[in-house]
Design a protein around this nucleic acid. Structure first.
Lengths: 343, 343
DNA sequence: TTTTGTTAAGTAAGCGCTTTCATGGAGGTG
DNA sequence: CACCTCCATGAAAGCGCTTACTTAACAAAA
């Protein structure tokens, strides 16, 4: 870092005091037009720009927001598809509002450790925090944040008491739409192949699955469920299990697109056709859903919208702390493709 | 941000001067063991941690590194697969070294504007910069950085004069291996479907393609090339053009996996078989290469390695500025799958 | 004994800014 | 003309830290 001109230099050149220069810079009233003009001339001449650090020391604000990306443990590269669109939209918004973005990544285990936040804020000096997590944000984390008086917004999850601002996806509604779509095509026996159920996403999807089938009056024995992880392999294996014993589901709802790809593989290997014999739907609308054959019906999460909204809310909270309505649940869009089209 | 205990508080509690406390914190010599112990006790008792901002103001260092992610204009979501692994590996390394990571994203057009860097460093106070770009980093950017005395490393590209530290991929070597592999399977007529040739990646791949074919003694008319963008659609259309007129290539090298997917679609639509009639290879080893049928031969870029290496070098430079060897070219691994297997 | 060196600790300046308080002049009022 | 108000400006404190300089104590050398 090179040191440029300071307030003092500008003041000297403009023939005024540093206080006046500071007033001009911060747009305060009570500065005469001529003084302002001469100060501005001096600023231009010296190519002056204020030292953010010094300013922060006085004001106690840094203009930096921290984004904590909470990840699987160990990290699963396929979750990356999910994270960058959110980062992008957060950044895009923050850029327009003149906030800086600092990022941190950690596993959900690390994140849960009581020592995590103290360590995190030890060195870091930020005004607010965005938490991108697929897991419940534990109570002690919210307390810690409150205690330190750091505004925060949770993206994709919530805390047990819904105390924090949070932006979530309507997983239940999405699953419900999916089930409705399949129901309308005449399906009666539904299978669910889930990913790790400790993730909140999955939790909502499981709930939605059960309640939708209930709503349609399906007997309990017609709702088959299996849980693995989020991989192609897991989908493949669990689908094989479904196929190994009666009753076979005629429609399979998968926790994400990768699981669906695995399931489709298992189905076609058995010589069964998709969607004629078994319909398959996924979740997340990743690029694979358009490439796989048949193309995969799936759910598009409003990732960019979530990121932007979270950033917006945090900035609003930072500008003037106010009790805001706490929870936002964003609707998801179902994307119908060939893997579930009724013939 | 909540204000906690200060140096002064610690000094008072320990019955010493602030200077002594500062010496203890920074591990300076000339502090007696008892004094140190009592200061440390006071620190613990007050749960004190130094104010990074105040420290930065004095030392002129912030402990923050900025990562500038330079993107297509408009943004193409499919490049995200590329960026996050790099961010991840950078972060992982920096975390261990106690550096913070601030990120910025911009289009390559914005990045090239003379006003970009001044504006960027206006507010931002960072010690070093990592530039993730697929385009040549222009001379004036390097000068600006030099002038401001900000160490930097370029990832995935370079500047015209190779003045900056940079980490690149051996695109030429990768293409050469690919061509060699196809040559060994008996192919004689090669097609290349490229993405935007203004990207340095593509540049290296084009070069490598030409020189490899030269090396194998192929006549010029047997090297067919077409350029579009990086999308499935582009690959599809350009492949159709290849198929529309003689001579048809028997092996097609694509600029990335998406282009390859499009090309494969065009080929199978014509009733031709892959790889029997035409072999196809891609680039980037994205998840689609494993999902498409037949599975796609492709090239795996050492993304994580590049990110880590870049971070390492920057930190080393920051710790003790030293003329380092300037350029690193990382080898890529070719991943042979079904789309190019000789029968 | 006096001088010099060494070490532990303190004093105080200052990093570049914001902000409170003080000041003085211009203008308005009775 | 005395008084008050209002406004533009300046002086100076202080945000929390590092560090050059100083001091004091004590030991070793002369």
């Amino acid at each position: 870092m090179q040191r440029g001109a300071t307030l003092k230099d500008v003041a000297k050149l403009a023939g005024v005091s540093v206080a006046t220069v500071s007033r001009v810079i911060n747009g305060h009233a009570n500065v005469s037009a001529e003084t302002r003009a001469s100060v501005e001339r001096a600023i231009l001449k010296l190519n002056y720009s204020p030292n953010t650090i010094a300013r922060s020391l006085v004001t106690g604000r840094t203009g930096v927001i921290s984004l904590i990306i909470v990840q699987e443990d160990p990290i699963v590269p396929t979750t990356w598809f999910y994270e960058l669109p959110i980062v992008q939209s957060i950044y895009d918004y923050l850029k327009g509002q003149d906030w800086e973005l600092q990022i941190a990544m950690c596993s959900y285990r690390e994140f849960q450790e009581p020592a995590f936040l103290p360590r995190h804020f030890n060195k870091r000096t930020v005004d607010g925090v965005l938490i991108l997590s697929a897991w419940m944000v534990e109570r002690h984390i919210v307390s810690e944040l409150k205690e330190r008086n750091i505004p925060h917004v949770i993206i994709g999850a919530h805390d047990p008491d819904y105390e924090s601002l949070c932006i979530e996806y309507d997983n239940e509604g999405a699953i419900r739409s999916l089930v409705e779509h399949l129901w309308n095509s005449g399906h009666q026996i539904f299978g669910l192949i889930g990913g790790a159920p400790n993730q909140l996403h999955m939790h909502g999807r499981i709930q939605g699955f059960a309640s939708a089938l209930e709503e349609f009056g399906l007997p309990t024995w017609n709702r088959l469920t299996k849980y693995g992880d989020w991989s192609i392999e897991s989908g493949y294996e669990l689908m094989q299990e479904f196929l190994a014993r009666e009753p076979n589901p005629t429609a399979v709802v998968c926790g994400n697109d990768y699981i669906a790809v695995g399931a489709m593989r298992a189905i076609t290997e058995q010589g069964l056709r998709i969607p004629e014999d078994i319909a398959v739907v996924g979740f997340d609308d990743t690029v694979v859903s358009q490439i796989i054959s048949p193309t995969l019906t799936t759910v598009r999460l409003p990732l960019a919208q979530a990121g932007r909204l979270a950033a917006e809310r945090l900035v609003r909270e930072l500008d003037k702390p106010s009790p805001d309505n706490r929870r936002v649940v964003l609707p998801c869009e179902i994307v119908i493709r060939d893997s579930s089209k009724s013939s």
